[in-house]
């Protein structure tokens, strides 16, 4: 993907999610010789009807989750849709158990992981985007390859190594590697950084700044949206990660994702509490999304655009 094309696509994708599409893709010529007005109106109604129906389907599971979360235990098995009594206490009950510890673990993993990833991945992406050196292309291809290959391929030897350092049972085997660059973030940042015109950095260099200073002072501020996007992605990756903690973490160190999955068996299948706990893991994500929709879209588009 050429830089320009990437930029163009990024822009449209950002528009795609953050603003209402300015015009239907089908256009609407003032007086088209084709379709009569009536058919257009019909199409309009049909499209909106389908959209509303789909929306209901997309929202229904979340709604059911919420309604169940405030039911009493008996009612959850009754098939009732609407809670007879709104038991808001379910949320506090859930939080008083293991949830608090899981939450702490999730935050540790996600916050440290994101910080480490930024520290290590930014310089690499910068180098791949701006330096010309022999093997650059190979390096980039390798980054993409590691990004694509399933983590399960290398998990056995890695586990053995971490067991040697007695760090299995904790989340560190998942956090520490992020100090050494994350392929997906490197890839994404690099895709963005190549779109920043070189002139700015060159000007800074003429001013006598070293390469590192140039990166920190000049290029990174311009890359703020991309940085925000990779940070968010990394945060959510860690927050949602189930496989990694399942392999490494002891119950002490479980994050929310693993805890929630065992919640049902541990709580004698109380669906109302299970749903309350599950909902609590969803809420932060939704809030962040509403606050940072634009960042998300740009990020996703960067991933999609490339190929």
């Amino acid at each position: 993907m050429t830089g320009t094309a990437a930029r163009a696509l990024t822009r449209t994708a950002a528009r795609a999610l953050t603003r209402t599409a300015t015009a239907p893709a089908g256009g609407r010529p003032r007086r088209g010789p084709g379709g009569p007005r009536g058919r257009r109106a019909l199409l309009w109604v049909a499209a909106h009807a389908v959209a509303i129906a789909l929306s209901l389907m997309f929202l229904a599971p979340l709604l059911f989750m919420f309604l169940t979360a405030v039911m009493s235990d008996e009612q959850t098995l009754s098939g009732d849709l609407w809670p007879a009594h709104w038991q808001w206490g379910n949320f506090t009950e859930v939080l008083s158990g293991d949830m608090a510890r899981w939450l702490g673990n999730s935050l540790l993993y996600a916050v440290l992981g994101t910080l480490f990833m930024l520290l290590s991945s930014v310089p690499v992406a910068y180098a791949l985007a701006r330096f010309r050196f022999r093997g650059r292309k190979v390096a980039f291809v390798l980054v993409i390859t590691t990004m694509m290959l399933p983590p399960q391929i290398t998990v056995v030897p890695l586990y053995i190594v971490w067991a040697r350092f007695e760090l299995t049972g904790t989340l560190w085997p998942l956090i520490l590697p992020l100090l050494f660059g994350d392929a997906f973030s490197i890839f994404l940042l690099r895709q963005f950084l190549v779109t920043i015109p070189r002139d700015y950095a060159d000007a800074a260099r003429v001013d006598g700044c070293g390469e590192f200073t140039t990166m920190v002072r000049v290029v990174l501020p311009m890359a703020r949206p991309a940085l925000a996007a990779v940070a968010l992605f990394q945060f959510f990756y860690c927050w949602n990660d189930y496989y990694g903690p399942l392999v490494y973490a002891k119950p002490d160190a479980w994050p929310l994702a693993v805890g929630i999955a065992t919640f049902r068996a541990a709580h004698n299948v109380e669906w109302n509490l299970t749903m309350a706990a599950t909902l609590l893991t969803v809420l932060p994500v939704i809030v962040v999304f509403l606050l940072a929709q634009r960042v998300f879209v740009q990020g996703i588009t960067l991933t999609g655009v490339k190929g």
Partner: peptide, 9 residues
């Protein structure tokens, strides 16, 4: 929605 939560739901 986190995959684990979505699946449970």
């Amino acid at each position: 929605v986190p995959p684990v939560s979505a699946t449970v739901a």
